[in-house]
C-alpha cells in the first residue's frame, strides 16, 4: 500500500469527521447451479472500508481516487443520502441522517452528473425557487445572487430556460444556485466533468475565491489532478475504499517519486527522452551526445504518476 500521512486537525474547528466508517454493498453472483439460482449468492463490495479522516473548517480538500474507489459514496454519506454500515459520520457537528434538515440549511451539495435546476424554467426562476424552499433571508439572497451572477458570469443567460443552456453554462448556474444560501460547507462531486477549459477556469477561480474570502470549507472530487492541485491544498487519495494517502500535494509528489527526464532535440529534428536521478551522470551522458540542438528538463506530471499508481492498485473500474 501507499504511504499514508495523517493530518491532524483541531477538534473545535472540524467541519467533517469520519470515524472508522465502512459502507458495504452487495453484488449478486452469477448462478452456477440450480441451488445458486434458487438462493443467489452475494459478494460483499466494500465501497468504504474503515475510513477515518477529518476536515478542518475553512479547508479545501481534494478527494481523489480511481473509478469505484468510494468517492461518490462518501459524498452521499456526508449528505445523509446513505447510512454507513459501521462507523460514525459527523458534518458541522451534526449527524447527516438524524439531523438532515438543519444540516441541509448549512451545506451545499452538487453532483456534476445531476441537475437541480428546473429544466422548463429560466435560471432566475430556479434561483427564486431555491430562495423560497431554503427560506433564505432576502439580504443574504440578494448578496449571494449578485456575487454568483458576477463571478460565474451567469447574467448573460439568467433569463434563459435551463434546458437550453450549454453544459458549461448549466454547471455555472448549478454552482451558483447551490451557493445562494451561503453554505458553510460545500460538497462537490466532479463539478468540472465534461467542461471546456474556459468553463473549468471560471469554476476553479470562483471556488478558490470563495474558500479564501469566506473560509468556506470545500470538499471536491475530480479525476483531473491538475484541477485538484490548482484548487486544493490537501489531497486525500482513496483506493478500494481505503485511505491511501492524506497530505498536501508536495508530499504527494515526493511520495510518488515522480521521475525526472531530459528531452533532447537533435539538429536532424529527432527526439530522445533520457530519464535520470543523478544530474552529474546525466550531464556526462549529454556531453557525449553529438548534434544536440536543444535540451529541455522536465518532471513526470502528477497525472502520470497517479496513473501508474492506480494501475498498480488494479482498482475496479
Amino acid at each position: 500500500m501507499f504511504t499514508t500521512v495523517q493530518t491532524v486537525t483541531p477538534k473545535a474547528g472540524t467541519a467533517i469527521e469520519l470515524r472508522a466508517v465502512s459502507k458495504h454493498f452487495y453484488q449478486r453472483q452469477p448462478a452456477k447451479s440450480l441451488a445458486d439460482w434458487l438462493s443467489p449468492k452475494r459478494r460483499q463490495i466494500p465501497a468504504l472500508d474503515d475510513v477515518s479522516f477529518s476536515v478542518a473548517r475553512g479547508e479545501f480538500l481534494a478527494y481523489a481516487g480511481p473509478n469505484g474507489a468510494g468517492k461518490s459514496t462518501t459524498i452521499k454519506l456526508l449528505s445523509g443520502m446513505l447510512t454507513p454500515t459501521t462507523g460514525e459520520v459527523t458534518v458541522l457537528g451534526l449527524s447527516p441522517l438524524k439531523e438532515r434538515i438543519p444540516l441541509m440549511r448549512r451545506v451545499g451539495v452538487l453532483f456534476g452528473n445531476r441537475r437541480e435546476l428546473w429544466s422548463d424554467h429560466p435560471v432566475s426562476a430556479s434561483f427564486r425557487w431555491k430562495r423560497e424552499v431554503w427560506g433564505v433571508p432576502k439580504a443574504v439572497f440578494d448578496e449571494m445572487e449578485s456575487l454568483v451572477l458576477e463571478l460565474l458570469d451567469i447574467r448573460p443567460f439568467y433569463q434563459t430556460l435551463a434546458r437550453e443552456l450549454s453544459l458549461g453554462q448549466r454547471m455555472r448556474a448549478e454552482l451558483g444556485m447551490m451557493l445562494l444560501h451561503r453554505p458553510e460547507l460545500i460538497l462537490l462531486d466532479e463539478p468540472t466533468l465534461g467542461l471546456d477549459v474556459l468553463a473549468k477556469r471560471q469554476i476553479i477561480a470562483f471556488l478558490k475565491e470563495l474558500n479564501e474570502r469566506d473560509q468556506t470549507t470545500i470538499l471536491v472530487t475530480s479525476h483531473d489532478m491538475d484541477d485538484l492541485e490548482e484548487m486544493a491544498r490537501r489531497i486525500l487519495l482513496l483506493s478500494n475504499g481505503k485511505v491511501a494517502f492524506d497530505g498536501d500535494f508536495s508530499a504527494l509528489r515526493g511520495a510518488l517519486k515522480l521521475g525526472k527526464k531530459a528531452l533532447v532535440r537533435f539538429r536532424n529534428q529527432s527526439l530522445r527522452e533520457i530519464p535520470y536521478d543523478d544530474i552529474g551522470a546525466l550531464l556526462q551522458e549529454l556531453s557525449a551526445l553529438e548534434g544536440v540542438a536543444e535540451i529541455e528538463f522536465a518532471q513526470n506530471s502528477l497525472e502520470e504518476g497517479l496513473a501508474d499508481l492506480f494501475s498498480s492498485w488494479k482498482a475496479p473500474s
Binding site: 445523509g80 443520502m81 434538515i101 441541509m104 451539495v109 445531476r114 431554503w134
Partner: peptide, 9 residues
C-alpha cells in the same frame, strides 16, 4: 436524492 438535499421534511 434531490429531495433529500432540500431542508424540508
Amino acid at each position: 436524492d434531490h429531495m433529500l438535499l432540500q431542508p424540508l421534511p
